[in-house]
Nucleic acid binder design. Structure first.
Lengths: 142, 142
DNA sequence: TTTCGTGCAAACCCTTTGCATTTGC
DNA sequence: GCAAATGCAAAGGGTTTGCACGAAA
């Protein structure tokens, strides 16, 4: 991503470099806060607004996708790491990656029946993961 | 909903009455702002925090569901009006109701393949509606 | 009367913005 | 040198909260 930015004529400031690197090295999805937290450690005078601006830039250039999962949880994900979706556990907050193929049928149905072009790269599905589901079952037996 | 609240021992203040009535009479999904806007007209000294508190109460009592569609768009929907989902147009903001049945296959797959109990009552799918899709196509030809 | 609900204002979180300053090129 | 990027602090939107007052039961 760094070289692509340079090619496009964007200035390579140390902040940008560190932010972009952090995004690339992050797990498959990060938040602005997480990126910020990682960068401040090595570069204590970065500002979070710079993080937001950089992430916005990367999104504009289609280098990351931005997913708003609701409840103030916005996630960023490098496009070149492939598409996937998130299953978000309402109890423990776990994020499970979901393969794109699972949703292809749905996308097709929505287009056919509703003429709606669903942007399923930006989907977060709320629910309960296996472990929490067991915990709930257990506590309800009490 | 009003009588149920009374049965449960909650006080029937004029504010509560108007808010609950507004929620019931609202289209199938409303926001706190919309409810507030409706209620102030007849009762100019309601406060929006009362609206939030009442909606929270109704949610706790499982009388409405709360759907966070992201980007600061939180929707409330009376449970007794049946489940449905939302297709949210990223361009014009249109909300299209989606029948529950469309997602049953998905729910089943998620449970089978991911052991994930998806809460599809709370799903908002972002994308582009038919009209905006045409507009985009048109402007790209320009 | 006594607890519950409300209004008000302030705080909250996350994100964005205006502006002066600094920096890369 | 000049436009682009940053830091800072302040504002923004939507929501929540502490507290004293008011009203339902």
């Amino acid at each position: 991503m760094v070289s692509k930015l340079a090619e496009l004529g964007y200035r390579m400031t140390p902040q940008r470099l560190m932010i972009v690197t952090a995004v690339e090295n992050a797990a498959d999805h990060t938040s602005a806060e997480e990126i910020f937290g990682q960068v401040v450690q090595k570069y204590p005078n970065v500002n979070i607004s710079t993080v937001y601006r950089t992430l916005d830039l990367l999104e504009e250039l289609h280098m990351v996708t931005k997913t708003d999962l609701g409840s103030g949880s916005v996630r960023y994900h490098p496009v070149d790491k492939g598409h996937h979706h998130h299953l978000v556990c309402r109890d423990c907050g776990a994020l499970i990656n979901l393969d794109e193929s699972v949703l292809e049928g749905l996308k097709h149905d929505l287009l056919r029946d509703y003429k709606f072009n669903a942007d399923l790269q930006h989907l977060g599905i709320l629910g309960r993961c296996e472990r929490c589901e067991r915990n709930v079952a257990r506590s309800e037996n009490t």
